[in-house]
């Protein structure tokens, strides 16, 4: 069962990559669709981040005693300034480690 889901996910993923190169798709998509596609990355990644940082296993919002919120905000700031994934990773992890050390 799980193998089937893995294979189908692979097929779906490959289709999103190959379709535009297949020659089967019109070269110019409707403006509305093109426009919408530009927002997909932000629109899917942001909820995943918010969920990973803010929501606990009981599906409650974890405000208290949650160093991830602080680390994520610092990381966001660093990313906005530096535009570097590597630097964002290093600073974000360093902040979490610092919290672990101090508290």
């Amino acid at each position: 069962m799980i193998w089937g889901v893995i294979l189908l996910s692979g097929v779906v993923t490959f289709s999103t990559r190959f379709l535009p190169l297949s020659g089967l798709m019109p070269r110019q998509l409707p403006k509305l669709v093109q426009n919408g596609l530009q927002y997909v990355s932000i629109a899917v990644l942001t909820p995943i981040v918010v969920n990973a940082v803010l929501i606990n296993q009981a599906k409650d919002i974890a405000w208290d005693d949650n160093p991830k919120i602080f680390a994520a905000l610092i990381a966001l700031l660093i990313a906005l300034i530096s535009k570097s994934i590597v630097l964002t990773l290093m600073v974000g992890l360093a902040v979490i480690w610092l919290f672990e050390l101090i508290f």
């Binding site: 995943i48 990973a52 992890l93």
Partner: peptide, 9 residues
């Protein structure tokens, strides 16, 4: 999440 934060930013 850190990698995603960087991509989003």
């Amino acid at each position: 999440p850190l990698t995603f934060i960087a991509i989003i930013a």
